[in-house]
Simulated assay, not measured.
Amino acid sequence: MSLSRLHIVDDDPTIREIARRVAEAAGFEALGFDAPAPFLAAAASDPPELVLLDLAIGEQDGICVLEALAKLNSRCAIIVLSGLEDRLVGSAVRIGRSLGLQMLEPLAKPFQLHDLRARLTAAAAMVLPIRESDVQDALASHQLVPRYQPKVRLSDGAPVGCEALVRWQHPSRGLLAPSHFLPLVEAGPSITPLTYQMIERAMTDLASWRQRHPGLSVAVNVSARSLDDPEFADRVWDILARTGADPSSLTLEITETAAMADTAAVAAMLTRLRIRKVNLSLDDFGTGFSSLVELHRMPFSELKVDRAFVGTMETDRDARVIVKAIIGLAHTLGLTTVAEGVETEGAMDMLREMGCDVAQGYGIGRPMTAEAFQEWLDARAGIVAPPLARVG
Rank of each mutant, 00 (worst) to 15 (best):
I364S: 00
Q136W: 13
P214D: 05
A140M: 13
P48N: 04
Q112E: 14
E294R: 10
T312R: 03
E294K: 12
D34I: 10
E186N: 11
V338H: 00
A42C: 07
H170Y: 03
S141W: 09
P36L: 13
R167V: 06
H7N: 15
F33H: 05
V358W: 04
L280N: 12
G32A: 09
N221W: 11
N221K: 11
F39D: 00
V323W: 00
K277A: 07
L282M: 11
A108W: 08
M103D: 03
L52N: 08
S155P: 08
I322P: 01
F33L: 05
R147H: 10
S208V: 13
E371A: 13
L227M: 08
T14C: 11
T121V: 09
G32Q: 09
R352S: 01
A177M: 12
V310A: 02
D12V: 11
R212W: 12
T204Q: 03
M1H: 08
T14P: 13
A261P: 12
D61R: 12
S281A: 10
L81F: 01
D349Y: 07
P230F: 01
Q136C: 10
R5H: 09
P146V: 05
I383V: 08
Y196Q: 14
R242H: 12
T369S: 14
V305N: 03
L116K: 11
V391P: 13
R131C: 10
D61S: 11
M313V: 06
I63H: 13
P106M: 01
